[in-house]
Design a protein around this nucleic acid. Sequence first.
DNA 1: TCTGGGGTCCTAGGACCC
DNA 2: TCTGGGGTCCTAGGACCC
Length: 420
Amino acid sequence: MNKLFALVDCNNFFVSCERVFNPKLENKPVVVLSNNDGCIISRSNEAKSLGLKMGSPFFKLKDFLKQNEVTAFSSNYSLYGDMSQRVMSILAKFSSNIEIYSIDEAFLDFSGFDYYNIKNYAREIKRIVFQWTGIPVSVGVGTTKTLAKIATHIAKKNDILKGVFIIKDEKELNSFLKDIPVNEVWGIGKQFNKKLIANNINTVFKLKNAEQQWIKKNFGIVGLRTIKELNGLSCISIERVARNKKGITSSRSFGKPVTEYEDLRQAISSYITTASRKLRKQKSLANILTIYILTNRFDKEHFYYNHKVIKLPLPTNNTSTFITFASEALRNIYVDGLKYKKAGIMLSEIIPEEHTQLSLFDNVDIKKSNILMTTIDNINEKMGTGTIKSASEGFDKKWKMKSEMRSREFTTCWDDILEV
DNA sequence: TCTGGGGTCCTAGGACCC
DNA sequence: TCTGGGGTCCTAGGACCC
């Protein structure tokens, strides 16, 4: 059976989510900012045409955005997450074998769909997703995931294709590949790009035809796989079920600098709450907790970073246990008088719950703690995050992130539902 | 004043084994 | 003159992705 993959990619996803609930923004330049209103992370086509770059800092562009009447939004992840789920659940109707690759992309296995008219099928996906959610998507189809990615890129860049491109004819494909810069390929990042260009491989076409031994030597097995995929040999398969995380991180920059130990401890406690809930959700325990704090990394002269790795006596997923150890460790790395900009925590050496090695005497306590954690998780799930929380998270949250241009939670909060 | 957050995989080198 | 030949495991760092 010939393999065939589709990649469905939401166009300018975060901006598109905002537009669904604010149609006046159609055809106007719009951007969405990262947490803390830091950088531009999603741009409408109009914003792209103004030359706004992905990842550029908002504060440097404020005037420019005003002059050009660009609407900016703080990120609203509960909205985007919910819209994403709606899109994905529709896509699942079009193939039983689907991999949700990111918040705005999914691979669909089309292997064995030979008797379908693939182009019509892809157009139907695009039409239905838009009709049911208001989100515009592009669809690319190829015999490998890497080719499907490229196909989506081609679909987006060429208006005449109307958002759908199926790779069928090698000659036709090559004519496109001759004009696509090599860093558009999935798996070719900044460093690989530099190295390839230095060797005069600057288009996808040249990369596709590069000498495989040379690629393997210079770009390792990963690079070789990419070339093989470009040539139609499928090396990366669909991963239907999300694997359990091997590390769970939670970190945030602060809205304004934090100086007090107590505020840092609050921030760290709330990151632990977030991360340990994820840990419990995947029914795992962590052996290692790492905490870190840092000052403004752009002020190189006064930059301070420190972290502490805590090996827990027993693997756990108990929020209070983590917080107890973290508070202790924080004392070791906290330096008085500094302006902290960010803090974070990481859970690692993650194992499945059932692998616990219970010590003879802790048995009962662990059972109790499990019941408590499950109860708290259930209440928070039902009544909203933060309904029950640990006192060490604090109530005033002086350190909370900036989010001054946030839209409403149109789809996930009763009070925010759109009124007509 | 202001510059995001969360992941995965691979490789090279060292320690250690028989 | 001459100095084996495999392995495994771990870690740090570097690449990539969205």
